[in-house]
């Protein structure tokens, strides 16, 4: 299958209490902790998906960043629907794993929460996004020590060039202790930014 040079159509970052779409700051609140910040961002960005509040922090991060990029696509019937997801991070679902562990560590007070347990896998986030945007596409969640632009580049290119996907939403979402960051970008046949390892690193480090 012949495919023209792939592009990065758009990208979104959430870090340091800021939400960026491409180079534009679309929300900022420096007065709050992560929990309040992400809730305020959800409201400000008209996300309108009550199940958001049931998600763990990692899913909230990925869901919100994905929603900013995919919402215009989802509402446009002309747009491709076969959008694969290729996410990555270094902490997996560690923050939620710790919460679950805390709920089962005391045998005299052993009440594991089903609502917490269901998020003890990082790829649950991909399921939340797929449900929201009605995606029946390939999805993968990789664990790396650091952001691995080369791997994501190869993976997205392969998915599109072999016809497994029309577009690929790629990136890095990480949540551990007090740290969090999300960086997602949409690989497509359309767009103005070249899809190559150097550009991906440039966009990731620009935030």
């Amino acid at each position: 299958m012949k495919v023209e040079q792939l592009k990065i159509k758009e990208y979104c970052s959430i870090f340091n209490n800021k939400v960026m779409l491409n180079e534009q700051l679309i929300f900022e609140n420096q007065e709050t902790d992560f929990s309040s910040f992400i809730k305020l961002a959800y409201k400000k960005l008209d996300t309108n998906y009550p199940k958001f509040f049931k998600m763990d922090d990692l899913s909230k991060l990925g869901f919100l960043a994905a929603d900013i990029l995919l919402k215009p696509i989802s509402s446009d019937s002309e747009r491709p629907k076969n959008i694969a997801l290729a996410f990555s991070n270094s902490a997996s679902s560690l923050e939620t794993d710790r919460k679950h562990q805390n709920s089962i560590v005391d045998k005299e007070n052993y009440f594991p929460s089903p609502a917490i347990f269901v998020y003890t896998l990082p790829n649950i986030c991909l399921g939340e996004i797929s449900i929201r945007h009605k995606l029946y596409s390939e999805n993968s969640f990789f664990i790396f020590n650091h952001f691995n632009a080369g791997y994501l580049y190869d993976y997205a290119t392969c998915l599109i060039k072999t016809g497994k996907a029309d577009e690929v939403l790629c990136g890095w979402i990480n949540r551990d202790a007090d740290d969090y960051e999300a960086f997602l970008y949409l690989v497509s046949t359309e767009g103005s930014i070249a899809h190559n390892k150097e550009e991906i690193i440039k966009l990731y480090t620009r935030k």
């Binding site: 049931k54 009440f111 594991p112 929460s113 089903p114 609502a115 269901v118």
Partner: peptide, 13 residues
Amino acid sequence: SIDALELIVMLDK
């Protein structure tokens, strides 16, 4: 269904 499980835990706890 997850909420239902959570309510079962709540009754117990």
